[in-house]
């Protein structure tokens, strides 16, 4: 490996790591226990964990079938296949704030569907915990879909045919062969999905708003704290970092690709 490449690689590593190092160095360690156990922070932590968990479950329920469809789309006409792939990719590339605006235009009180919901059923979605989950699902589902689809296309699908010759119906094949076959991909996707949902900020604040206990998740709380109490903001940021690292360590040897020891 050429020396110049090593130098650049180290530079890249610095770009990734130094901001986190600064976060750790500048953290108000003495006050940290008090800061992260303060009532507002605990409230935000609880809300974040609950919403990210629900969002992950929703992503699994909706995303796995979509991944299967995507994996099977190899037989579909090329334009349809590209459209399908683009539909999953775009939210991934979109700034989350744009996602939040788009969600408002769809589900807001004057939105395409939201307007109808409000008029017919008196249901409004923005400013609710449900809106937080929807925003998180919107930004994190692509991670799950691509993880599962990657696992599907990497697996030997002929075992599904073997299962069919043994009398398994299509649903049984999916349930008893396909799912176990891609379980590592599903698990890795769920982890990515959860951490992405946990860190979701832009779409949440744009679409759901910010109210303690209802819509103010940890990232939103961190951003607000930056206005008044930067130490608290740093403490929350550290908390989020700790959760992300904990999740990775927890699943290190099992499922997450690239983090295997």
């Amino acid at each position: 490996m050429p020396a110049a490449l090593v130098v650049v690689a180290i530079l890249a590593l610095a770009v990734l790591m130094l901001p986190l190092v600064a976060l750790v160095v500048r953290a108000p360690w003495a006050d940290l226990p008090a800061l992260v156990t303060s009532a507002p922070v605990l409230e935000a932590l609880r809300l974040s964990l609950v919403t990210a968990t629900i969002a992950t479950v929703v992503c699994l329920a909706l995303g796995v079938p979509l991944a299967v469809l995507l994996a099977h789309s190899a037989d579909a006409p090329a334009p349809l296949r590209r459209l399908l792939r683009a539909a999953v990719t775009v939210p991934l590339l979109l700034p989350p704030v744009v996602g939040g605006i788009a969600l408002l235009l769809l589900l807001g009180r004057r939105g395409l569907i939201g307007g109808w919901l409000a008029e017919t059923w008196g249901v409004t979605i923005p400013f609710t915990t449900g809106a937080v989950v929807i925003a998180q699902v919107f930004v994190s589902m692509p991670f799950l879909v691509f993880a599962v689809e990657g696992a599907l296309s990497g697996a030997d699908r002929r075992v599904e045919q073997a299962a069919a010759t043994l009398g398994a119906s299509r649903w049984q094949v999916f349930r008893h062969v396909t799912l176990p076959l891609v379980a590592p991909g599903v698990a890795a996707g769920a982890v990515l999905c959860f951490t992405r949902a946990l860190g979701e900020f832009g779409a949440t604040i744009t679409f759901a708003g910010s109210l303690p206990g209802v819509t103010r998740t940890l990232p939103v709380a961190s951003y607000l704290a930056l206005q008044s109490d930067p130490d608290e903001a740093i403490a929350i940021a550290l908390l989020l970092l700790a959760v992300a690292v904990a999740v990775l360590l927890l699943l290190r040897d099992r499922w997450v690709p690239g983090v295997r020891a």
Partner: peptide
């Protein structure tokens, strides 16, 4: 009933 060339046993 089929015995496949590379058997295609279920690894899980």
């Amino acid at each position: 009933g089929v015995v496949f060339q590379d058997y295609l046993l279920f690894g899980h």
